[in-house]
Every structure is written in structure tokens, then in C-alpha cells.
Design a protein around this nucleic acid. Structure first.
Lengths: 382, 382
DNA sequence: TGAATTAGTTAATCTGACTAACAAATTGAT
DNA sequence: ATCAATTTGTTAGTCAGATTAACTAATTCA
């Protein structure tokens, strides 16, 4: 708990007004007053302050059945940019959005240069510079960098692909951009992205399947990252006691059975095509080839176990699945949900991600805006 | 987010003062001012209000190196009683504590009468009446009833032992006692009890092993009970795909391998003594009998898997184990923590429960006091 | 005995939300 | 057209609660 005093009331109520606007804009002062239960007068004061800061603008007047027509208020989205970068193993993706979360231009994709550790930051700075030049000239509200690995309080603890542990990315970028910089685990960002889209409710878990398997856990509308930022490492839940060895040192981790890498290995073995690519596997799935179908059966089984375990422990309202498989195979999710071992509680949803902007990027934007506006919840405009 | 106004500031700051006192009493007004960062004057006002309510008393003066000696303040523990009941399958236990969490007399234990559903509430009312007669005559601050089963927002959804689903316990008790009544899952209460003892930090998980296996999940100092109060059902994490059938409908739930019931079944099979009791099993463990040792080996293995799965998903700072086994076998916990599959993150603690008051009861007291004082955290006096 | 120090109180000020009264704008009935 | 009814938004004044500054009270130590 923290001390409260007048100044904090004002800050809090200002955030409340912003949050309400961000979730339901456009709104008039009168509507804001009704929704926040703050007095009309208070709302007017707060709004004029926010307008002085250029955060809010009047955007015309709304309809009325009888009585004076309301002056509509909106977040002044054009005054700043939220930035996000997804540092994937194979490519770097740069995202920019206006302050309401709507895209600003297209994401920029670069093939990931494999640099030594010391060259990493300069390369990133350069790429970022290049990206910024394409953008309208607005002060950045913040930058969020999605890391495939473990991050805790802006420190990188471990990355499986690059060797970034303890490399200070945030400091130099912060200095260069003159805005806050946040580092965050990629799966956690996916969860924030789902939250921002309003796809899922206050309690859900967002599962990302790539070459590994990770998850982000949202409880009571907040991301739970655990004591050291290691929560959601569900790729290393043990699905098969004494099963296949995993680089983590254990045996039988789900990641060895249901990740893209595991599926591809399996497919290569079953099909005899030792050079097959993941895309070829996807095509084989679509074509219902027996080798691919066997792989999928196995995938469904292990996903069922994984979902059961996750749901039993945290009782989410929904599970969102981020996977190239789900995008390609429309009946995959129902199959998983119906798997005998899945046991997703009655009526709970297993749903695919629905971002047009990639989820990690959307999550980064969400985080930046959350911090910028000092707000717990908001909605990203598409 | 909620609107803030002057009245709420005062309520919040009053709670802040109470919370600080509850965690660190006795304290002087000056110390309170320093710890809460509230002004001396404000503290004096709040304290005199709390004293008028009989919640706080002056308890003498403290030492001083130089200058006026401070007047020490304490929670006025004797003005009310917190009550808790643990409705175990085999017995009912009634607890009473003063407002600082210290015991008031000994818990009352009754063998659980197996009544029909309709007779349950009258029997409970009668027993409670009897318990209250032994207690000093103070107004109850609240009553918490620990349920072995699923509870959500004071509604009982499912109980494996009694048939209490949708039976309204809270309403009638509330009316009789004239104080708030809370129903809560037993494993969740254990976790609150551990929190109250200060045994564990802000992120931990508390695992209870009886005939089944349950858990309570504390994140950021708050109990996470999931969307429908079903979180922590870890007895039904799948440890062995396609393993032993479980009444829940799945196969291979940990509960079928590491619960007291599972251990006893196993021991009866291994030892050939089909009538052995759990206490006999415990004795056999202490005596290092081969059949018992085999059971324990299996237990250690499955607990290792369970702990790995739980820790990977939620990244707790500690795991507290509530089990008769742990109390009896001092080297059991180190063995589990060292199990090859346990993978509790470096330096994280696996520790036994340390309540002298039973954990469920302590958790009930914690919940009642939390609500009574309107406070997030507090410390139970032993 | 008095200087230094700490605890707690009193009186006055400041900030922010609220109330009441009003002006402005719009609909719809006469 | 005109006026009543209704809704929006503002202005002026009040109230609650935290803060500041200046005080009294009590204690240690030289």
C-alpha cells in the first residue's frame, strides 16, 4: 500500500479518465462523468488539463434526443508514436503505432543478422534508425523490445538464440530515443497483445508455439511474470516421465513432443524425407498425408495434456493459442479441445490468436501505451 | 480502477496505518509517520479516530536515546474475535483468535458427524454455539469456513466428502453470528495461513497433501483463485499419460500416485498387509521398511515431476509443503528438492509448513482479519 | 541547570472534489 | 415562431483532508 494525498487523487483520477477514454472513446464530458462517477466539474478540470497536454482533443459534437449536443472527446493519437521490436531468431520486426494503438505504416522486417554479441547493439541501433526515418516525425512514447528468452526487470537473463544475457539493451536505446525502453519476454508480450485486442478476459493464458513452447499468464487483468520473470516456461512441463532428453537437463518435456521443432523432426522420421521444411510439413498436413496426420495426432495428444495441466493449476477463462498450425488447420483447435485428456473446464474457450498485427508487436505497443498513459487496461485500435 | 475522493483517501490511509501496525506493532505515532510517509499531524488524526473505534490502544512508552519518549501504539486485540472452522472429512475443527491473530484458547475438535445434507447446517450451528460458549464474550469480527472442495464467491460448487454443493452455509451463519462469513477452499486457506505466518514471500505456492492433493497460489501477495475458484487443482495434473484411471475421468493424475490414499494403497500392495493404516505406513517409513521405502521412492519421483511442472508455469519464490509425511520424515523434502526431475529454480525453497495452529485455521483467521481491517497484508501473532 | 533532541499538538494554508446555480444549445409541442 | 423541457458544460462557493510552520512536552547528556 502507498500513501494517498491530494496530488495522488488527481493523478489517479486523471488516469481513470484516460483509461475510460482509451476503452470507450469517443465520449463527452457528461458521459465521462457518468462512467467514472466523478463530478461534471471535476471531469471538466481534468479534461482541460489533458487537452493542455495535447493528450486529448475535441472531435466534433455527437447526437442528442433533446438538449444541448455533447462535445466528443478523443485521445489525440497523432501526437506520439509507440514503438515495438520483435527480435525473432530468424528476423527482426519493427512496429509503430499511434497512441490509440492503430498501425502507423507497415511493420519493417529485416532478416536477422547473426552478429557477435558486441556487434548486436550497433546493428539494432542502425536498423532502428532506418525504421524511424520512414515514420512521421513524432516523439516516441516508448519502445518495447520482445526477447525470445528470459527477461526480468529490463535485464536479459538468458536467450537461446542470440547471446544477449546481461547485455544492456535498454540503457543505450533509452538514451538514443529519449523515451522509456522496456524489454520483455516474447510469450508474455503475446498475452498482453491478446489482452489489448479484448480477445480474452481478465484471466487467461496465451500459449505460443514456435521452435519452443512458451506462455504468458494473465490473472485479474495483470501479467504475472513470477518471482524472476521465469513464469510461463511451459515447454518444460514434463509430459512423459523418463521421456526424450531435453537440453534443459530433464527428460520428457512437452517441448520435445509438441513444438514446431519436435513436429518437424517427427515428420522427417515418419515421412523419410530428412530434409523436409516446416512449410512442407504444413502442406502435408493440409493434404492429409498419413505421416503428417500421425504427427498431428501426437501433437493433439500432448497439447491435451499440456492444456489440462495448465488449466488445472490456474483455472483460466480462456486459452489463446499462437501457432502457425492453428492458422493453417481450422479444425485443429476443436480437436485439441475435444482430446480426452484436455479437460478444459466446461465452456471455456480455446481460441486462436486473431491479430493482424503480430501478437508480440501488439503486446509491445500495449505495454508502451499502458506505461505512457499510466493506465492498467486499454484497447488497441486495429 | 475506481474513482478517488477525499473520503477514500482517508479510508485508504487509515488502512495503511492499520496495515503498518499489524505488521510491525508496537509503533509510536512518529514511527508510523516515518514508515507511511504520512505527516505527523495526519497520523495523529487517524490514530485518534482508530482509538475512538477501540481498534488501537496506547500501550505504554518506549525507550529514547534523547528526547521525549514515544507513546507506543498497538492493535487492541482484545475487542473482538476472529473465528475459523475447518470442515475436514473426518473431523470438524473450530478455531478462535484475537484480533492480532494469537490463539484464544485451544481449537475445539469434533468427530465429523455424517449427516444428510439437510441436517448439516443445524449440526454445524449447534457445534458452533457450543464452541462460542467456551469463548470470552466478544463480538466476532468474522467467520471463515474451510471447505474441502470447490468454492467460488461464497458458493459451494462441489465437495467430494459431504454433499454440500449449492447449500447456503454463509447466509444463515451470517445471520446467527451477526458478522461476515466467508467460505473458502481448504488448500487456498493453507496458502493464506503461510502468508500470515510470514513463512513465505509474495510469490509462492502452498501444496497440501491429504487423501487428495491441492494447492493455493499466491502471486504478488494475493491469492489467485482463477476464473471460477478452481485454481490449484494440481492433484489432477497428469503425471503419467495413459496411467491409472482417476475418478475425474482422466488417466494418470498425480493424485493417483502421490496422495496419501495412493501411497497407502501402494503400501498395502507392496507389504501384503491389506488392512494397514496410514499411521502404520508412517511407522514403517520411519523404520525404513523396504515396502515403505519403495513407496517413498515413488512419492519422491512424482513429487519431483509435480514441482517441476508447477514451478515452470508460475515461477514461485518458494513452495510450502503441507503433509504428514514431511512432518514425520525430516529428510523427505531435501530428497524431493534433489530429485532429478524437480528442477526447482536455483536457491528456491521447498519448505515444510510451520504452523502450530493448523494451517487451514490460520488461513481462515488471516482472511477474517484481512477483511475486518480492510488490509492486504498482515502478520499473525503466534 | 541548560542545550540538544525527539514526540506530539495547534492553527493556518493548500489542493482537489463536490454542490448549487447558471448559461448554452437543442428538441418538440403549441 | 415561441416556449417548455432537457441535456451539456461552466462558474462561484463550500467542504474534507493532507501539509506546513510554529509550538509545547518530555527526556538525555554535558
Amino acid at each position: 500500500m502507498n500513501k494517498h494525498s491530494q496530488a495522488q487523487i488527481r493523478a489517479h483520477n486523471e488516469s481513470l479518465v484516460l483509461e475510460t477514454l482509451l476503452l470507450q472513446q469517443p465520449l463527452s464530458r457528461a458521459q465521462l462523468s457518468r462512467r467514472t462517477h466523478l463530478n461534471k466539474v471535476t471531469i471538466s478540470e481534468i479534461v482541460s488539463h489533458l487537452m493542455a497536454q495535447q493528450l486529448v482533443i475535441e472531435s466534433g459534437s455527437g447526437p442528442s434526443r433533446s438538449g444541448r449536443r455533447p462535445t466528443l472527446l478523443e485521445i489525440n493519437a497523432q501526437t506520439g508514436l509507440a514503438l515495438a521490436i520483435d527480435l525473432r531468431p530468424d528476423e527482426w520486426v519493427f512496429y509503430a503505432a499511434w497512441l490509440d494503438g492503430s498501425h502507423c505504416g507497415q511493420p519493417m522486417v529485416l532478416p536477422a543478422p547473426v552478429y557477435q554479441r558486441t556487434a548486436f547493439l550497433p546493428a539494432l541501433q542502425l536498423a532502428l534508425q532506418q525504421f524511424l526515418q520512414q515514420l512521421p516525425d513524432r516523439p516516441p512514447a516508448g519502445l518495447c523490445v520482445g526477447i525470445h528468452g528470459n527477461v526480468y526487470e529490463n535485464r536479459i537473463l538468458f536467450t537461446p538464440y542470440y547471446h544477449l544475457a546481461e547485455l544492456d539493451l535498454a540503457g543505450p536505446l533509452q538514451e538514443r530515443l529519449n523515451c522509456p525502453v522496456y524489454l520483455m519476454n516474447e510469450a508474455n508480450l503475446c498475452a498482453l497483445g491478446d489482452l489489448g485486442l479484448g480477445l480474452a478476459q481478465d484471466n487467461f493464458i496465451s500459449i505460443s508455439i514456435h521452435s519452443g513452447i512458451g506462455a504468458g499468464l494473465i490473472q485479474n487483468g495483470r501479467l504475472q511474470s513470477g518471482q524472476q520473470g521465469f513464469s510461463g516456461e511451459i515447454g518444460h512441463l514434463i509430459a512423459v516421465p523418463g521421456g526424450k532428453p531435453c537440453p534443459c537437463g530433464n527428460h520428457g518435456c512437452v517441448e520435445q513432443y509438441a513444438s514446431e521443432r519436435a513436429l518437424l523432426d517427427q515428420y522427417r522420421e515418419f515421412s523419410g524425407d530428412t530434409e523436409a521444411s516446416f512449410d512442407q510439413f504444413l502442406n502435408a498436413c493440409r493434404a492429409d498425408q498419413p505421416a503428417a496426420a500421425d504427427c498431428l495426432n501426437q501433437f493433439v495428444t500432448y497439447m491435451g495434456i499440456l492444456l489440462n495441466n495448465v488449466c488445472r493449476l490456474t483455472d483460466p477463462a480462456a486459452v489463446v493459442l499462437h501457432s502457425r498450425l492453428a492458422a493453417v488447420l481450422p479444425n485443429l483447435l476443436p480437436r485439441i479441445a475435444a482430446a480426452p485428456r484436455c479437460r478444459i473446464p466446461n465452456g471455456r474457450l480455446l481460441q486462436p490468436s486473431q491479430h493482424d498485427m503480430d501478437s508480440t508487436g501488439a503486446g509491445g505497443i500495449y505495454l508502451v501505451l499502458q506505461q505512457f498513459f499510466g493506465v492498467e487496461r486499454l484497447k488497441l485500435k486495429r
